[in-house]
Design a protein around this nucleic acid. Structure first.
Length: 877
RNA sequence: GCGGACGUGGCGGAAUUGGUAGACGCAAGGGACUUAAAAUCCCUCGAUCUCUGAUCGUACGGGUUCGAUUCCCGUCGUCCGCACCA
């Protein structure tokens, strides 16, 4: 019987409709079964689904379908991270309203996603730019204000003078705005902040409990939070140096108070108050400070910048020696943002300080010497010593270990006083800064605050929410359109009723994505969450997304969850129990021409040839040979993109899904190749042939496992595959699960063909029937459409998507006879087939009887026989 | 500079965490079917040699062990994160 080829273009929409009709993927909050929440990071609606998205969502979908089959009440929602700059840029360039542009994109992308056959609960879909959503975000903001989690303060920002907007650090490239190209200025601006630093310690400590997170991500977050333990030390200003009115001390932060006797200078940041005051009557210093401020902030500039300073003439007195004074410099390597913006320089123990001291001829006194060195000959020339050791040249600290000396200095200085306050205090410092959320933009969630001349900054009453974005808006000029709107900003002060004005800053889009996972648990709720639903669903059991969000998005979400607990919206601290960071989809690049004449070619524009084992790429249009470049992240500029449609149009969604999870481990990058996609599609056709040719003869057969003979082999193969595929999916090892499925298909080929040809006895028929049922259920998470088609062909009347995961028979996954590899002196020389339950004595006897073992022993007794049960035997001759 | 990860056939990658290195897939080569092609099926596929067998082989050099891709030390290379953080 000749079978038709499987036609995904006809089948896939058919099954998608069937799933929709039964609402199989809509989660019910009242379902009593154990819950499972799987979530992929929601996309920005750029207009097109990228192939990287499809890999991400396929992974989540496999987990969702598997868990559903395992009997869980699965929540698998999807939404849109829909605020942000691209919509405004599009508005400026193409005269489209950001709202129209965004919702059009969402509609287009939703259709693309639906083609993939994802088991998503579309009933819970929302976009962060929906008024319904940002209304609740404003409610959260006001609750946070009430709990003291929001603050307003002045901070330095990157200001693009041409676009008249604040830029994030990553939008500043070589000191210029990424769009305007204008030189970016540092400006002081009053901004809104979330007080994430209040949670710095907790955010750090709780990382330990996240045992289903990648170590890498936890480490990155720990580094970002950047905890250090040190001492704040207040140094009295000396009357012998330059005197500044109203200033009598300099406070520094140090993690190495033990090296205090190695100090040879003080250095303050250019923005330090002392520096500013000293510069008032010192034009040369003022000029130096100005230079430092305009120093490039790019990585290259920082790396090459020399350590430079300027002596202010001010001197400080050493805390332990009233006769010892040190100069105070303004230095370009000290930043105001960390610690107190001032340091004491210990050249022997810090490379930067040493470079600085050598440049300005300041003393270098070694104070820590490695254990076992000779103090007479130990010296520091141009390499500072930062390791452990023993204190020298440090008076009463001599002979101590540095950490002892740390404690000793801390203890003594805590007791000393300077102007009624202790001279030092222990201080834990964090690198983490408060989260500045103000953006001078239109397309974001309005910050619900009102400025009143008399009452100050007043929250918008909750009853007046939402503060809606006005629709009539002009993008003809740079800057924030909300500022120029004729009426929007004018509003009555809710406290005194006089004229006030709205806050025109909108929120950072990271705010939107910091709680969407909670909103999905009850997107219809009037409050930001339905606490009961949130409690039941959260935490997200498996969160999947790109490593690029390892720090900000995940850290902000962790902060937000804590803040939402504080305000009664959720009752947990950690939003994501399991985190998985998937790799990118990459493709090689093709380029013709050289220098400024070169152009990139899309994969569809080249033909690949294989000549004498050497791959060549030829531009189809011109016949010109193109240079094949390395694998790179798909990007528009290099044209090495493959769109999901190119695959789904030709091969269907199942092929795309299967290919994307094959071969490469999910956390690693996967290379998109035409051969690979074609191979995945061949396998789909192969499964279809296998199942459909056998279907007729197996249709009426009752499935049953066999233990012996050929039928037993079939059943064992099926049950072993069933066990390992389940385990692999649990571990998100999709590539391994797929390899096991290939193995099963290989093992079933001959028996199924026998069954189709009517050559199978009843036992084999029953075993084949069960094995093919198992096969269909195993492929279902990855290739759900094909699974349904196969199931229907086999006579199934229900949907695989609503069927339970099969249960393996433990007795079928172990063999009664095992093949033990036998080594002689650690090298494999042969095998021993023996009963699984044979005891050690029997194994040893059988091994020693093997002729290759006897030959190796040359009649002598073995020195040792190592038997690892069920594993291996090693005979030591 | 600091911190981290990784390095296995022509390629993507397996290896139950110290126990048969190379599962599975891709590519390649050979064969069958066909008038021919596509599709499909079968076989070969780490290297070398004195080729029914043996030796070598998991970046390189050492070490621990009966046994190391796996653990330890050093070197080289690739990738990632942070960065004048005091």
């Amino acid at each position: 019987m000749a079978t038709e080829r499987y036609n995904p273009r006809a089948s896939e929409p058919k099954w998608q409709k069937a799933w929709d009709a039964k609402k199989l993927f809509e989660a019910d909050n009242d379902d009593p079964r154990p819950k499972y929440y799987v979530l992929e990071m929601f996309p920005y609606p750029s207009g097109r689904i990228h192939i990287g998205h499809t890999r991400n969502y396929t992974m989540g979908d496999v987990v969702a379908r598997y868990k559903r089959a395992k009997g869980f009440n699965v929540l698998h929602p999807m939404g849109w991270d829909a605020f942000g700059m691209p919509a405004e840029n599009a508005a400026m360039q193409n005269k489209v309203h950001p709202k129209a542009w965004t919702y059009q994109n969402i509609a287009a992308m939703r259709e693309q996603l639906k083609v993939m056959g994802l088991s998503l609960d579309w009933a819970r879909e929302f976009a962060t730019c929906d008024v319904d959503y940002y209304h609740r975000q404003q409610m959260l903001f006001l609750d946070f204000v009430e709990k003291g989690l929001v603050t307003r303060k002045s901070s330095k920002v990157n200001w693009d003078p041409e676009d008249m907007t604040v830029l994030a650090n990553e939008q500043v490239i070589d000191g210029r705005g990424w769009r305007s190209g204008a030189l970016v200025e540092q400006r002081e601006l009053t901004q809104w902040f979330f007080k994430i630093t209040d949670y710095a310690q907790d955010l750090l400590d709780s990382l330990e409990g996240l045992d289903e997170w990648p170590e890498k991500v936890k480490l990155m977050q720990a580094n970002w939070i950047g905890r250090s333990e040190g001492l704040l030390i207040r140094w009295p200003l000396a009357t012998t140096g330059k005197v500044i009115d109203g200033e009598d001390e300099l406070e520094v932060y140090t993690t190495r108070p033990d090296t205090i006797f190695g100090a040879s200078f003080m250095a303050v940041a250019a923005d330090h108050p002392l520096a500013k005051k000293a510069a008032e009557d010192n034009p040369a210093l003022a000029k130096f400070i100005d230079e430092v401020r305009h120093m490039g902030t790019s990585v290259a500039a920082l790396e090459t910048a020399e350590k430079k300073g300027f002596d202010t003439g001010i001197r400080v007195v050493h805390p332990f020696d009233a006769n010892w004074t040190l100069p105070v410099y303004v230095a370009n390597f000290v930043v105001m943002e960390y610690g107190t913006g001032a340091i004491f320089g210990c050249p022997s123990g810090d490379q930067r300080d040493l470079d600085f001291a050598n440049r300005y001829g300041l003393p270098v006194i070694p104070v820590v010497m490695p254990e076992g060195e000779n103090q007479g000959s130990f010296q520091i020339i141009d390499e500072a010593y930062v390791g452990d050791g023993v204190m020298i040249n440090s008076r009463f600290l001599d002979g101590m270990k540095p950490d002892q000396a740390f404690d000793e200095v801390a203890k003594l200085l805590e007791q000393k006083t300077l102007g009624n306050r202790p001279m030092a205090e222990r201080k834990v410092n964090f690198r983490l800064r408060d989260w500045g959320i103000s953006r001078q933009r239109y397309w974001g969630c309005p910050i619900p605050m009102i400025h009143c001349e008399d009452c100050g900054v007043v929250p918008v009453p909750k009853a007046d929410l939402p503060v809606r974005l006005p629709d009539d808006i002009e993008f003809d000029r740079p800057g924030n359109p909300l500022d120029r709107h004729p009426t929007w900003r004018h509003v009555k002060c809710p406290q005194c009723g006089k004229h006030g004005r709205r806050e025109t800053d909108t929120m950072d889009t990271f705010v939107d994505s910091s709680w969407y996972f909670a909103r999905f648990t009850a997107p219809w709720a009037n409050d930001p969450t339905d606490p009961k639903a949130a409690t039941e669903w959260l935490p997200v059991d498996q969160y999947i997304g790109g490593i690029e969000h390892a720090i900000l998005h995940l850290l902000y979400s962790r902060f937000f969850t804590r803040a939402m607990r504080e305000t009664g919206h959720v009752d947990l601290a950690e939003p994501f129990r399991g985190l998985f960071t998937q790799g990118m989809v990459v493709h090689e690049t093709y380029r013709v021409g050289s220098g400024s004449n070169s152009r990139w070619l899309a994969p569809s524009e080249v033909r690949l040839e294989d000549v004498d084992g050497k791959r060549r790429a030829i531009e189809i249009a011109t016949g010109e040979e193109a240079v094949i470049g390395p694998l790179e992240k798909m990007s528009k500029s290099k044209k090495n993109t493959v769109s999901p449609e190119e695959i789904t149009d030709g091969y269907g969604a199942d092929t795309a899904r299967w290919f994307m999870l094959s071969d490469s481990p999910p956390e690693r990058d996967v290379e998109w190749t035409d051969e690979g996609a074609a191979g995945a599609h061949r396998f789909i056709q192969r499964i279809w042939r296998l199942v459909s040719t056998a279907a007729e003869s197996l249709a009426g057969i009752k499935p049953a496992a066999a233990k012996q003979g050929e039928a037993g082999t079939v059943s064992k193969a099926a049950h072993k595959a069933l066990k390992s595929v389940g385990e692999d999916i649990e571990k998100l090892a999709f590539n391994r699960a797929i390899a096991r499925i290939y193995e099963l298909a290989n093992a079933l080929t001959t028996p199924l063909n026998e069954a189709a040809a009517g050559k199978a006895d009843p036992a084999l028929q029953a075993a084949c029937r069960q094995a093919v049922d198992i096969l269909v259920h195993l492929i279902a998470p990855v290739m759900p459409h094909l699974a349904e088609e196969c199931w229907q062909t086999l006579g199934g009347t229900d949907l695989v998507a609503e069927r339970p995961w099969p249960v393996y028979d433990p007795s079928l996954v172990v063999d009664s006879e095992i093949v033990l590899p036998v080594q002689v002196n650690g090298k494999k020389r042969g095998d021993l087939t023996i009963a699984r339950d044979a005891d050690q004595g029997a194994v040893e006897k059988a091994v020693l009887a093997l002729d290759f073992v006897q030959k190796a022993l040359e009649g002598k007794a073995p020195r040792k026989v190592i038997i690892v049960p069920q594993r291996i035997v090693n005979v030591v001759a």
